[in-house]
Nucleic acid binder design. Structure first.
Length: 1000
RNA sequence: GGGCGGUUAGCUCAGCUGGUUAGAGCGCCUGCCUUACAAGCAGGAGGUCGCAGGUUCGAACCCUGCACUGCCCACCA
């Protein structure tokens, strides 16, 4: 019997069970639609969301948990609101990170990957992945994420690898991929190029070394003069091929056309003139090392300087570095400085604060390095990606950012974008589908839509081809996810004819409208119903692309979000709409909305980091407080644009909330059981919808039903705007503040199983019980996206273990049916208008106000909590609605029961000598013998008087103001007048009471 | 060097397009083991909304300046 609930809620007792249940029952599976079939609900009502794929190497941290909580709340909410919801999970192969992980393993075994060889190493990584790669998703399952596990992907899956290859191949044949020798950011530890984004800059206290380069005379002899250059990386001087000065720099005008002798290397290098040189910085003379600095590289190109690479891939000096060969760059730096000093060529050392680039992955200092890499010419893709975010002529945006300010950040970056270095010198990843010819040394890239690797060189026909050894940047494959997970490119029939026929990158692409000229393959209408290889994928794509929303952190805005937008817009443009029409930009975006969430920090607002040791492990917290409490904590603090300072004190509070809900359920089930004993059964078929109340229902029933509807309206509205905090707080307030604190306390009075033989009592009890359960059941549904475990457990118990659907997650989300439509409400006879004093909200607030006043007065008089006492209620001239509310017998009884008083009314004023309490519209007096603490009383009254005087003065000042009276809206003026009158009454009474206190 | 945020109760944060006397949770104080819940109930204290001007009948909210603080971007050796 599920009604036997323990006294305190123990999350650990139920969570594993439900987590497994949701997965096992495949409750959230959303299989690909059958081609041509009519599905319900209609395809238009989809809610599709991709999980930002965690790294396979990853362990769940608070950021993941926030991200997943938000996505789960939205997905569950949309699903319950009738949308066909699909949340798609997967993991990222995370090239560098994973390779590092396995290399570390090998090191422990005393091996290196080079010893293993590429093939064996990659197999080893796969093995690792099979073993440990699922950890993070297992954690996710445990947290109750309502994803479709049948669709789980991995970015190195065969299916997704096909997409990656096709994307590269198309871009290549569109002329948007190029290969060349450039300066790239090189990580000497990872021994690979990394993109600009993967370099993180740290401010670093370094030095600026000033080195004297001897000036040579006409015959190549030292003149005895020196040109002093300044550098932060002296070791690069081994590769210097010039020194640059500003052409207008008067100090050096006499050196124009002269040469220098490069110290330590004894190489003659020219002095070149370039306006790029800043005369103010350093000495105004810059050593130029084209092979080791991006600026110098550009300078070198302009002046046709040789490029001398002096370091190997591990940042050790190579043979070109003379006697320093073999030294690590920092060791070499020391020796070079020392040698220069000995030769008196070191003019000075200055402290210098500058930014040093580090590898995002391993934090090694990045070395700009000349190497052959693959790049994407990004501008054409960026143009579309910009158009997708900027408002069109009608002011519509194909992609909307929340918070909106990220739109600016995004556009700013996109408008200043650089070509993307996509090659990585790793073994783990998608190997670049390009083949080098041993004969003509040209490159062969397969044609689009071909599966076979090329057998012979496309240029000379030679069969001596070897595939490129570099792999693609991890973000290349994750950038493709929105299209690749839905089957692209295998979704266009007769694909042999499409592909490289036209080049979208070519001039003529209209990036403003996004309507490219590469629509070579406008499929026929009814495409999805045809039987062909990709029909199933195509139906999937048609149903779910574009996705609805992306929820992610700003840290991967450029890495991932921007790349998905570029790729999504680029590769989906030529896929016709399901009806065969061309795909507009708004339908080629990978997602329609982006919600960017904040960072989770520790309770002191510090960034969580391993080195600081302040990382909060979500799994630990979950074990301690329960998943629901942690989820609720995150949700309640997730206000767009604000970082979350995660404080377990909050979580403790929400564990208490879970316990509160649990105990409310215990109370309800206890009464259900009592009712059953006297033959009252509640019809469960009435559950699952929104409860209604009728004119003859008692106040608390009419009120709580109205509150429920109002709460539903507010929660739905908040979720619509990603206001998780508002939504969570609203539900919290409703459940605890309204349902438990007031409704349950009052409904107890109407659950009278003792006098059940009386027909009226029987009916009233049955009705009260029905409303109680219905509201509770609806509240569970409303709460379930936030607290899926607890609500699932209790919801099943409400149905005594045999609910209609298999899960609360498959029921419908509470919708407001009152506040959204007053007219209809009145026509069906429900008395729930909020415009009159008959409104349950106003009636209830009066009752609550009276009860609170009575309780406060009791307390002040020192009445023991148990005792019932007599009390007097004095109505005054502002209190007509109070009087009319309380004259209702049921309301009077209510006040008496909840305040433990026996109430009498009076239309006189209380005697100044008695101790009473003044409220707006009435005074209360509790009849009880006690000695008044005159000092405390005087203090309280004095404080009240000051407050009233201040308020009254402010109100009167405004009411005397002509401008206010003429310009402010009538209701504001009226409200202020009323309030001023009330304050005046309260002030007078307080003054009188103070006057009446005994003096001493 | 550019750009974008933030500053409201002891703490963490709300406060929607300016409108009556600024809210919540936690913490704090007081009293209660009242048979759903002490992870609870009841009552209470606590804020000149960072500072200085301005606009307005009216400003936490709009404008200007300042202070402090956080983040992002940037090739200055």
């Amino acid at each position: 019997m599920p009604h036997d609930l323990p006294k305190a809620y123990d999350p650990t007792a139920i969570e594993d069970h439900w987590a497994e249940y949701w997965v096992r029952e495949k409750l959230f599976a959303q299989p690909a639609p059958t081609p041509g079939a009519q599905d319900q609900p209609p395809l238009g009502d989809t809610f599709v969301i991709l999980l930002p794929p965690p790294n396979v190497t990853g362990r769940l941290h608070m950021g993941h948990m926030l991200n997943q909580t938000e996505m789960d709340i939205l997905t569950r909410w949309r699903r319950m609101s009738g949308r066909r919801a699909l949340w798609l999970p997967g993991t990222d192969h995370a090239g560098i990170a994973t390779q590092m992980m396995v290399e570390r393993q090998l090191t422990e075994e005393g091996k290196t990957r080079q010893q293993l060889g590429r093939e064996a190493f990659v197999e080893r990584v796969w093995e690792w992945k099979r073993h440990y790669g699922g950890a993070i998703l297992e954690q996710m399952k445990r947290l109750g994420a309502s994803v479709d596990w049948d669709r789980e992907y991995f970015t190195m899956d065969e299916r997704l690898s096909v997409s990656v290859r096709e994307a590269f191949v198309r871009l290549y044949h569109q002329g948007l991929v190029y290969r060349g020798v450039y300066i790239v950011n090189w990580c000497p530890r990872c021994q690979t190029a990394i993109s600009d984004l993967e370099v993180v800059y740290d401010e670093h206290k370094g030095h600026l070394w000033e080195i004297r380069y001897p000036v040579l005379g006409a015959v190549g002899k030292d003149t005895g003069e020196f040109l002093t250059v300044a550098t932060t990386r002296p070791e690069t001087m081994l590769g210097d091929t010039a020194v640059a000065i500003h052409p207008e720099d008067e100090r050096y005008r006499h050196l124009h056309g002269r040469k220098l002798r490069l110290p330590l290397m004894n190489r003659e290098i020219p002095i070149i003139l370039d306006e790029w040189v800043s005369r103010e910085f350093g000495t105004g003379a810059v050593k130029v090392t084209p092979a080791h600095d991006p600026n110098d590289f550009a300078l070198g190109e302009r002046h046709h300087l040789p490029q001398i690479n002096v370091m190997d891939e591990t940042a050790h000096i190579n043979a070109a570095g003379g006697k320093y060969a073999g030294l690590d760059r920092f060791v070499a730096r020391k020796e070079i400085i020392q040698d220069l000093e000995e030769r008196k060529l070191l003019a000075g050392i200055k402290d210098h604060i500058h930014n040093v680039g580090h590898c995002d992955r391993c934090k090694t200092v990045v070395e700009p390095r000349l190497s052959t890499q693959w790049f994407i010419k990004i501008q054409p893709l960026a143009d579309k990606a910009i158009a997708a975010v900027k408002p069109d002529v009608n002011g519509n945006k194909a992609i909307r950012f929340t918070p909106e300010m990220y739109e600016k950040t995004y556009l700013n970056w996109m408008e200043n974008i650089h070509d993307w270095c996509i090659s990585r010198q790793l073994w783990w990843g998608h190997r670049i589908p390009a083949w080098h010819c041993a004969k003509c040394h040209k490159i062969t890239v397969p044609q689009p839509n071909t599966k076979e690797d090329p057998k012979s060189c496309a240029h000379c026909g030679s069969g001596e081809l070897t595939q490129e050894t570099d792999v693609l940047d991890t973000w290349f494959s994750s950038g493709l996810l929105p299209v690749s997970v839905f089957g692209w490119p295998n979704i266009i029939p007769d694909t042999k004819t499409s592909g490289n026929r036209t080049s979208p990158g070519a001039p003529g692409l209209d990036s403003e409208t996004g309507e490219g000229h590469h629509g070579t393959n406008l499929g026929a209408p009814g495409l999805a119903s045809e039987t062909w290889e990709g029909a199933k994928d195509r139906a999937d794509f048609d149903a779910f692309y574009p996705t609805s929303l992306l929820v992610t952190g700003f840290d991967i805005l450029f890495f991932w979000v921007a790349r998905m937008i570029m790729f999504g817009c680029w590769f989906s443009t030529d896929i016709p709409m399901p009806d065969g029409s061309p795909r507009p930009l708004a339908e080629s975006v990978p997602f329609r909305e982006v919600y960017i969430h904040a960072l989770v920090r520790d309770a002191n607002r510090e960034k969580m980091s391993k080195t600081k040791g302040n990382v909060i492990d979500p799994i630990e917290i979950v074990k301690k407080y329960g998943t629901d409490a942690v989820r609720f904590t995150l949700a309640s603090m997730a206000s767009p644009g604000t970082d979350i300072a995660f404080n377990v004190a909050r979580t403790e509070g929400y564990r208490a909330f879970a316990n509160k809900i649990w105990n409310a359920a215990r109370f309800i089930f206890m009464n259900v059981d009592k009712a059953a004993e006297v033959g009252i059964k509640v019809d469960p078929t009435a559950f699952g919808s929104m409860p209604t109340a009728y004119a003859d229902d008692p106040l608390e029933a009419r009120w709580i039903v109205a509150e429920l509807h109002a709460t539903a309206a507010k929660v739905n509205g908040s979720l619509e705007n990603y206001r998780f905090d508002d939504a969570a707080n609203t539900i919290y307030q409703f459940f605890w503040g309204s349902f438990c604190d007031w409704y349950i306390e009052i409904v107890k009075l109407h659950l009278d199983f003792g006098a059940i033989s009386d027909d009226l009592v029987y009916k009233a009890t049955r009705r009260a019980l029905a409303t109680l359960i219905q509201v509770f059941e609806a509240a569970l549904r409303m709460l379930s996206p936030f607290m899926p475990f607890l609500t699932e457990e209790l919801w099943h118990a409400v149905y005594d273990g045999s609910p209609p659907p298999k899960s609360v997650a498959l029921t419908s989300y509470p919708q407001d049916e009152i506040y959204s439509n007053d007219a209809e409400v009145q026509s069906i006879g429900v008395i729930l208008s909020r415009h009159t004093y008959e409104s349950p909200a106003i009636e209830m607030s009066i009752v609550q106000n009276v009860i609170t006043a009575l309780r406060a007065q009791r307390k002040e008089m020192g009445v023991p909590e148990r005792d019932s006492v007599r009390a007097l209620l004095y109505f005054n001239q502002n209190g007509s609605h109070v009087a009319s509310t309380l004259r209702t017998n049921s309301n009077k009884k209510l006040c008496e029961a909840l305040a433990k008083v026996e109430l009498s009314f009076s239309y006189e004023s209380p005697q100044p000598s008695t101790k009473f309490r003044s409220e707006v519209g009435y005074d209360v007096e509790v009849i009880y013998e006690r000695t008044i603490d005159v000092t405390a009383e005087r203090e309280r009254l004095t404080k009240d008087i000051a407050k009233y005087e201040k308020g009254l003065a402010a109100a009167e000042r405004q009411l005397d103001n002509e401008g206010f009276l003429s310009k402010a809206p009538a209701q504001v003026v009226e409200g202020l007048k009323k309030q001023a009158a009330e304050t005046r009454t309260l002030l007078e009474k307080a003054r009188a009471a103070l006057e009446a206190l005994p003096k001493n």
